[in-house]
Simulated assay, not measured.
Amino acid sequence: MARRRFSTQDAIALMEEGLTRQEAARQLGVTAWAIALRFRSEGLEWRGAQHRLRFDDTTFARLWNCHAITTDEIAVAAGVTRQAVSARAHSMGLPSRNALRRRKMEPALFRDMWQAGVRLRDIARYFDYAHTACASAAARKLGLPRRQRGPSGHRNGGWVPTITLEQFLEARLAGRLRAEAADHDRRGRIQRVGA
């Protein structure tokens, strides 16, 4: 394979335009390593952008903490590699995505969902687990009982019928509203008696 020739002046001009070394290499038809070697041999230093992440720190932190968006998707949107995204998160002092995922699981809420019979796929989606097996493993770690098989082999794959996450949240909200209404009625009776 023939080596492509490029002038140092062309590379310097691209650097002064604010391009990364990788972007300049693409335009010159060479590798970024070739530019790095040329600059090193001539005693120069690349002062252009090192990586072109198109997000400010606040936006980047929100993207990093959102598990609906993968690291690869952030990298594509930013025009850098996955490793560059991870390196930026590390340099900003952000926790690893696995640590965030583990921290998001609230044992009390998980226990309530499990005991109410919320579908495994809904629990996994809510807590950002990669698979339903992760939700089952979390239930085992919390000491929750296994899901039981029901008498019906035709519906729900033989499992005891489950509810959706939406049904669980509606029931939970209804319970809170009933409790608030009862508390409001109780306060009203106390005020009438005291008046």
Rank of each mutant, 00 (worst) to 15 (best):
A25R: 08
G18S: 12
D10T: 15
A24C: 13
L37P: 00
L63T: 02
D122P: 05
A61V: 02
G43H: 11
R111H: 03
Q50P: 00
Y126N: 04
G188F: 06
V193G: 02
S86H: 00
R40E: 13
A179I: 08
H90F: 06
R3G: 08
P145W: 03
A68V: 09
T162N: 14
P95Q: 01
D57S: 07
S41D: 14
A171S: 14
G188D: 04
D183Y: 08
V30N: 08
D122Y: 10
R52L: 08
R47Q: 12
E45W: 10
E17K: 15
A36I: 06
L177S: 11
S152C: 12
A78M: 02
V80F: 02
G153P: 05
A139H: 03
P145Q: 04
S41V: 11
Q50Y: 06
L14Y: 14
R21C: 05
G18C: 10
H90I: 00
M1W: 06
T8A: 09
R47F: 06
R97K: 04
N65I: 00
R176M: 15
G194M: 06
V118S: 04
R3Y: 10
L100M: 06
R140D: 04
A116M: 11
F110K: 04
A130K: 09
Q27C: 08
P151E: 07
N156L: 03
D112K: 15
D10R: 15
E170P: 03
A174V: 14
T58G: 02
K141E: 08
R82I: 00
R176H: 14
A13N: 14
L109M: 12
A181Q: 14
I74K: 00
L44Q: 13
S7P: 00
A99L: 04
A124M: 05
